[in-house]
Design a protein around this nucleic acid. Structure first.
Lengths: 139, 139
DNA sequence: CAGTATCCCGTGTGATACTG
DNA sequence: CAGTATCACACGGGATACTG
């Protein structure tokens, strides 16, 4: 059956093939989720928090290359979407801890899955990339 | 086993907790994969191809909002990484078909998972967002 | 039909400096 | 320690026009 898309799983079917109504909406929603989570740091933060709560500086230490600004922004976005909780301890010096919510943990599972996929298939991708490049760099 | 970072899964552990060596490299790799796949359209294209091969115009029809330019670029990138194959049929008018490779199918599974997550948790996210906004929009 | 080629703009990101 | 504030810039991505 090399023809296509007849099973109508209610996910990324874009108008036409099946009921043909909600498709576009779901596509937009998926893009929204990817915008939230598909940025440069979100999944990394979520994955880093999989072991439990961490404070700001610990997160920064565990994610090499992230700037203070981007860590702050990423954490705020994830908090806004209910993916992690932010706890400020009334101390001096201040201590702030971040922890995944239940919702965040479900996403974390997926991000771990993506990460494992990346680890497992890095070589295949690099090989394919090299093959493609050499095939297309014809003089 | 939702305790802390002691299991040392070889994924997003960034130097320190475990062996403490390869962490940064893997973090970079995950970011690379996310850059490849976490852009605005890649996962959507991959998910759209889950039912079998489709031609250029069919893809464009199934993914509302994507421009010709972005579809082309996305397809080229995915092809370069060995996630899909491109077949040009020597006909007039030209017909070009795209199909997931085995590697692409493994990623497709994950993207479907992300999509389902998005569908299932849209409301929770919107609720959390509204709550956060009202709590932070101090009068 | 299936692309390329340009132009252009928004915004995501980094660097740096400052604060409660 | 855990942030804000500001500037500056690259780049992703949309619109449009053209082509084999």
């Amino acid at each position: 059956m090399p023809s296509a898309n007849e099973d109508c799983a209610p996910l990324t079917e874009y108008e036409g093939s099946c009921q043909g109504q909600h498709g576009a909406e779901e596509g937009r929603m998926i893009r929204e989720v990817l915008s939230r989570v598909g940025d440069k740091w979100s999944l990394l933060v979520v994955a880093t928090l999989r072991g439990g709560r961490l404070r700001f500086s610990e997160l920064q230490g565990h994610i090499p290359g992230i700037s203070q600004r981007m860590l702050t922004l990423t954490l705020r976005h994830l908090e806004r979407d209910g993916l992690l909780s932010r706890t400020v301890h009334a101390e001096v010096p201040p201590r702030v801890e971040y922890e995944l919510t239940d919702l965040g943990r479900t996403l974390m599972e997926l991000s771990i899955g993506l990460g494992m996929w990346a680890v497992e298939n890095r070589e295949r991708i690099e090989t394919a990339r090299a093959a493609y490049d050499s095939a297309h760099s014809q003089v």
